[in-house]
């Protein structure tokens, strides 16, 4: 039995997770966790992934305190008790 990895769901995306603030998933990598998350909550998928299955450019994923861009992206391994945070890149200008 694999212990869970907790994914914290930002407020804006809770409309697609039945209002849940966090979702427990299993999986050996960040990619597997995200696949499980979106399989359990399909309406969430287009807000995280492009139609061809890549993480949207403005979606930053943190495994505990580390940005997965610097740790192996979606192949970054996860272990029981880890937590994943989804943080949108925020930018703009007049």
């Amino acid at each position: 039995m694999v212990m869970a990895v907790t994914v914290h769901i930002p407020t804006a995306l809770r409309a697609y997770t039945d209002r849940r603030e966090s979702v427990e998933t299993e999986g050996g990598s960040v990619g597997e966790v995200l696949q499980q998350l979106t399989a359990a909550h399909p309406p969430l998928r287009p807000h995280l992934f492009t139609p061809d299955g890549r993480l949207r450019s403005f979606v930053n994923i943190y495994l505990n305190d580390e940005d997965i861009r610097y740790t192996g992206r979606e192949s970054t391994p996860v272990k029981p008790g880890d937590s994943l945070s989804i943080v949108p890149a925020v930018a703009g200008g007049r």
């Binding site: 804006a12 979606v59 949108p88 703009g92 200008g93």
Partner: peptide, 12 residues
């Protein structure tokens, strides 16, 4: 701006 729109993340 258009730039704001291009960089927006999620509805809600």
């Amino acid at each position: 701006s258009i730039f704001d729109l291009e960089n927006a993340s999620w509805p809600g």
